[in-house]
Amino acid sequence: MAQALPFVASVSVQEADFDVGGEIAALSEGRRDVGAIASFVGLVRDLNDGSGVSAMTLEHYPGMTEKALEEIVEQARQRWSLQGVRVIHRFGRLEPANRIVFVGVASPHRGEAFAACEFIMDYLKTRAPFWKREETPEGARWVDARESDDSAAARWQRGD
């Protein structure tokens, strides 16, 4: 009889890039009870709202950012049967094709892994204190929050 292994969660807010394959592999390292790992990677695009983007700078609120991400992970853990969650969010100056964010979720079953991964991203988009400032040919501009992000987060509150 396999013994239940503990839930493992880890949140990092960092300037450095991350290794996607290594992070995914780490989610099931040393355990045989994981049946599914879902992951999401967010990248800098070279086009936003019709303007070319040559770079962006991500500002955050040190201290609160980590707490907000940990709280989101905890909500996901309470909601689904999860074995591990890894969240990495970068800050500082990034260029198109650079990675911004990683979310990885390990669970016994794919449905819960997919759902929790999407939930964490939707909540992160509306609750984690990051702000993007883009460099475009027309000058630098702060990115406006999208209403679609609010509605994406709100759909998890319908209790379905």
Partner: peptide, 10 residues
């Protein structure tokens, strides 16, 4: 106390 615009991370 912190004041800021709506967040745009991710």
């Amino acid at each position: 106390v912190a004041f800021f615009p709506p967040v745009t991370g991710g």
